[in-house]
């Protein structure tokens, strides 16, 4: 999945500039971190990519298609191509770990046998086979995030967007989650990681986009956390 931001700006009324003239492209299989202070525009950038917001100017192209012009009825199909991981996990509280992951496949209309096979497999990958019947409030923060990653992964999306996935985790679980994302990336999935965890970025040694006050101030292939 090829992603291109082409001179994208986002202005919220009455005149708050969240992003200003941003341009970059991400190729299939890349691991890209987006860093910046709070309010730098990281979340807005991710929202534009998920078509939750439309750019005020410029274009966001995914595989050549302008997602700013996507029809609302086509949004579910588009979003099924992307996996999302959030800082606050956003698991469905009344569904078990298994059901949370299966839900994505259910909305896609997958057969029960296929769901059972794939969910079991992905639970094994994230190391939660023995927690499949647990509800989110019975899991630790790290386990919840692993369920969230499994959910983002289950439908084999071309790209996984992770918005501060380690923000609520201790260093041990942070390493665990980053390791998992790297493993997924090695299998060919594009990872876009928004974070302000300096240690994570510096250890990764991957491409870093640095945002400051809505502007892209740095795009380095083996970047470090410098703000």
């Amino acid at each position: 999945m090829n992603i291109v931001f082409e001179r994208v700006s986002k202005v919220y009324p009455p005149g708050s500039v969240a992003l200003e003239d941003i341009s970059f492209s991400i190729d299939q299989g890349e691991f890209v971190s987006v860093v910046g202070k709070s309010g730098a525009g990281k979340t807005t950038l991710l929202k534009l990519l998920l078509a939750e917001e439309k750019p005020s100017s410029g274009r966001v192209l995914v595989d050549g298609g302008n997602i700013g012009g996507i029809r609302p009825s086509r949004l579910p199909d588009f979003r099924r191509k992307i996996g999302m991981v959030f800082q606050d996990y956003r698991l469905l509280p009344h569904k078990t770990a298994y059901e949370n992951i299966a839900y994505v496949m259910e909305v896609m209309g997958a057969e029960e046998e296929e769901i059972a096979r794939d969910v079991t497999e992905v639970l094994r990958i994230v190391g939660l086979s023995d927690r499949s019947d647990h509800f989110p409030d019975q899991l630790s923060g790290g386990e919840k995030q692993r369920v969230a990653i499994a959910r983002a992964l289950i439908h084999r999306p071309g790209v996984i967007v992770a918005d501060e996935p380690t923000g609520n985790l201790d260093p041990y679980h942070t390493r665990d989650i980053i390791h998992l994302l790297l493993k997924i990336n090695e299998l060919g999935t594009t990872i876009i990681l928004a974070t302000h965890n300096k240690e994570v970025i510096n250890r990764l040694g991957k491409r870093v986009l640095t945002l400051d006050q809505g502007r892209l101030i740095r795009d380095e292939q083996k970047g470090r956390f410098v703000i």
């Binding site: 579910p76 099924r80 956003r90 509280p93 839900y103 909305v107 959910r151």
Partner: peptide
């Protein structure tokens, strides 16, 4: 409402 937002983000259709 949060669940609904998550449902939307994982690609659930209106009918779902």
């Amino acid at each position: 409402r949060k669940e609904i937002e998550v449902m939307r983000l994982v690609g659930a259709s209106n009918a779902f």
